[in-house]
């Protein structure tokens, strides 16, 4: 049976739920183990115990406190030779995008980025900002894969606990030094983990009008996203941009307000289960992917929606 190694994505002692999609993929590909790498990551390993892994490997060291490509990729390469893994997989994130190409290079392995489908050793992935889907295969013995978590279901926990093994290896130090992290502080759910997202675009006209979307998001317990135009205008920080070049999301409900629907935006949200579009322009491309819509002025509609929509929190 093919051996698979899943690299757990975590931050501040918490598992990123997108890892469960990588685990789902791993279950399709063969027998899998999970690697948890960092400093004081026991609790992360605990969160992963019930998903059917043959083993959970923990590599825990103060030198691994902050993610760095050189250090982490060296640990993973050691683990790959220790386990004999043929697939090395992680769910897509900025960490995975930074790390996994280095893992592939270390292992002289081919890599498939952001896969959306897997069957019989063949992958599918989006190209050209989501306008084409390519089928491809990796021709090297070891295969490195990042999984677009919105395209795969999340693995469900079972009742059998996976054994945990501490994997100790010498940490090789690279020439990059971690200096600081300026976290975006928000009480709202994270974009990539939210059930409901409301997104705003150019239609808001000015940062002063942001309170309109905030009231609706409060009522829905939703994350707030923005189009590239809005981020470029400086109304919102970069990490809230939805689109092919920002975050790719697929919540249960996506409400696009004042967003025309540029190709690269659609590529970032069109797999959402239910899409609602509110836009003044009935020709806006966003309506072509929406399930429900209103051709209306957001300045009239939003306050009414925020008032009338039942609270979804609690």
């Amino acid at each position: 049976m093919t051996k698979v190694l899943v690299i757990a994505d975590h931050y501040n002692g918490k598992l990123k739920k997108s890892t469960l999609s990588a685990i789902h993929f791993a279950g399709q590909a063969g027998d899998f183990s999970i690697a948890v790498i960092g400093n004081n990551v026991d609790l992360v390993a605990d969160e992963l115990k019930l998903f059917g892994a043959e083993k959970i490997y923990i590599t825990d060291s103060p030198e691994l406190e902050h993610y760095l490509a050189h250090e982490y990729s060296a640990v993973i390469a050691d683990l790959v030779s220790h386990t004999g893994a043929e697939y090395v997989v992680m769910s897509t994130s900025t960490t995975a995008k930074d790390l996994m190409p280095v893992v592939a290079a270390r292992l002289s392995a081919g890599m498939a980025s952001d896969i959306i489908h897997f069957k019989n050793g063949k992958f599918k992935r989006s190209m050209y900002a989501g306008n084409a889907v390519a089928a491809m295969e990796i021709t090297t013995p070891i295969k490195v894969v990042t999984v677009l978590d919105t395209a795969f279901p999340k693995a469900e926990p079972g009742s059998t606990e996976s054994p945990v093994e501490v994997f100790t290896t010498e940490i090789s130090t690279g020439n990059a030094k971690w200096i600081a992290m300026d976290e975006s502080i928000s009480d709202r759910p994270e974009l990539t983990e939210a059930n409901i997202i409301v997104s705003g675009g150019r239609g808001f006209k000015d940062a002063e009008n942001k309170h309109l979307i905030e009231s609706l998001a409060d009522k829905l317990g939703a994350a707030i996203g923005w189009s590239r135009a809005a981020v470029d205008a400086g109304w919102a920080p970069n990490d809230l941009q939805v689109g092919q070049t920002g975050k790719i999301v697929a919540p249960d409900l996506y409400v696009a307000i004042g967003i025309s629907g540029a190709l690269q935006h659609l590529a970032g949200m069109k797999n959402s289960r239910v899409i609602v579009a509110i836009n003044k322009d009935e020709e806006a491309p966003i309506f072509s992917v929406a399930d429900y819509g209103m051709v209306a002025d957001l300045f009239n509609v939003l306050p009414e929606m925020a008032e009338k929509i039942p609270g979804q929190t609690g």
């Binding site: 392995a109 989501g130 889907v133 390519a134 021709t139 069109k270 429900y292 209103m294 929509i309």
Partner: peptide, 29 residues
Amino acid sequence: EPRVRYLSMENPMEREGSCVLFEAVDDLI
């Protein structure tokens, strides 16, 4: 020496159905 092989390409799956438009917020909700 390549390490991956591209096999074929297809158009992305389009979302089914069409957009239902409403005039009143109540109907959308």
